[in-house]
Amino acid sequence: MSDHSMDDIKSHVKVYMLVFASLAVLTVVTVAASYMDLSSGEAIFLALIIATIKGSLVASYFMHLISEKALITWILMITFVFFFILMFIPTIAFFDWVNIS
């Protein structure tokens, strides 16, 4: 990306450090949360929320998705549609099964 000036990069570096700190804190939070007395549904929800936040931070700042071209965003959005199809349709099908016995 040739459109970055030196100062841009320097301000980027600050952001990277901030992201790094938040990732470390969130890691500790998610581990701490797992020792709390939560129902399994709550625990799964919380852990996935934290993981999603961490994942978005990495994708947005380290992978520069936040300033990436529209085409890349489109490809990823399509991918996530298919990803969720792959995750959820087998799951829904799992619960919708004829009990022959």
Binding site: T30, V31, A47, A51
Partner: peptide, 11 residues
């Protein structure tokens, strides 16, 4: 790994 870690170790 950020997703693997909670899914495998914490849940």
């Amino acid at each position: 790994w950020i997703f693997l870690f909670p899914v495998l170790y914490l849940l």
